[in-house]
Amino acid sequence: MKKIVAPDYGLGETVKSHAAAIKVAIKEAILPQTVTSHYPGERRRMPDCFRGYLRFDPEMCISCFQCSFICPANAIGMREAPDNRYYPTIDYGKCIFCYFCLDSCPGGALKPTKVHDVAYNDVDEMLTPTCDMIDMPEIIREDERYVEYKIDEHDLSLERVKGLDDLAVELPELEKISMVSVCVAPENCLSCRVCEEVCESGAITSALDGDEIRMTIDTTTCNGCGLCVKECSMQVLRLVRREI
């Protein structure tokens, strides 16, 4: 263990350290190393991975509910759209910007933006319905420049660049892991049809075969959302990789 010994000041050291403190103050008063960025006149440029408001692309959404399930703050509520599919809505009054939803989204339907400086005058307005999440939101911007932190071996300096920082971010395309639902033990199936009812893509269908109801999964239309696997009370369904 490296031991720290507290300094013991005699008169000489006292005067010297007073002088050192005053020296720093004078130096900074004359040539300060100011690091202030002048928001709202300018804004810090955030890295592309910055977690701000979310955008949503309904084309990519497979209505798997995973964003809603994973949300630690229960900020994402699925809302039934006119086309009877469930899409996410975000309540920014709860959202903690952890991006667990974005990391969970198997289809890549959720997209990041760098929008983060927002003020609402009504708490009820903070719920953002699906239809508002598709385009970039518009915020009041008074900035004319953006500030970049330049850190080199010696110090930090601020570089100011004229122009507006683009707040939209395009992530590299998600390498999708395509899954498909299969029934591993059809003999245990109760034919309760929960899987059919929960299936958004209509891949699971039931047909009357004599006295029995037979369930079939159409692997080409199945989008691998996994809801049927989760809902199946007999746990006879599994998500497996789609064979290519």
């Binding site: 006119p82 307005e125 239809c131 999440m133 598709i134 939101p137």
Partner: peptide, 17 residues
């Protein structure tokens, strides 16, 4: 006023089940 505004996109499509 709130400092954010959204463009609402029409989501209506053919209804499914």
């Amino acid at each position: 006023r709130s400092t954010i505004s959204f463009r609402t996109v029409d989501l209506s499509g053919a209804g499914g089940k």
